[in-house]
């Protein structure tokens, strides 16, 4: 007991350091499956796309569909609505309307308020979020705070004139 440490020189230090590094790498690699297991499983990922049939949405009407568990607003805009939103670039987060749509007739935005994550209601022109009073126009752009950003546009693609898939760009 109480033996003084005797150094074995560089060779020993190198071996111990090497082993520590190799062992540490193994521990780190072992963490990977544990962390990965908390990511969405393959059956959840398989539901990452939502197909929407647009045929029965009349001009001026809005439909809410679920995509990855989140509400997505699909608004079929009338020519008047398109005209009014094209006139401005929004207020708090300026962006032209044509950068936010693939086809001006169809607005597709994620219906989650960029402030605290509530779902805004369709009221008059645009949406109003009742949690903290943010307002959005018919392009989903924020016109009244506290929301800092416009409503997010999800990746989507028209499969046909009246068929849309959300989640695939």
């Amino acid at each position: 007991m109480g033996n003084e440490m005797v150094s074995d020189g560089d060779r020993r230090d190198f071996l111990i350091k090497l082993t520590s590094v190799v062992g540490g790498a193994g521990v780190a690699a072992t963490c990977v499956p544990f962390v990965a297991s908390m990511n969405p499983s393959s059956d959840v990922l398989a539901k990452a796309e939502t197909e929407v049939d647009l045929a029965d949405i009349t001009p001026g009407a809005m439909r809410t569909v679920a995509w990855q568990g989140k509400p997505v607003f699909i608004l079929r805009r009338t020519p008047e609505q398109i005209q009014s939103v094209s006139a401005s670039n929004g207020v708090l987060d300026p962006q032209p309307d044509n950068a936010r749509v693939q086809n001006p007739e169809w607005l597709v935005v994620i219906g989650v308020c960029t402030h605290m994550g509530c779902v805004p209601n369709k009221e008059g022109p645009g949406w109003t979020c009742h949690c903290h009073g943010s307002q959005y126009d018919d392009s989903g752009r924020v016109v009244h705070g506290p929301a800092p950003k416009n409503l997010e546009v999800p990746p989507y693609k028209f499969l046909a004139d009246n068929k849309l898939v959300i989640g695939r760009a």
Partner: peptide
């Protein structure tokens, strides 16, 4: 393969550390 390498390394580490004892006593 990894565990085999690690175990061999650990074996040498163990031997080197225990070799200190012979030198002391």
């Amino acid at each position: 393969a990894y565990l085999f390498v690690l175990t061999v390394l650990l074996y040498f580490v163990k031997n080197q550390i225990w070799a200190r004892l012979d030198r002391i006593s």
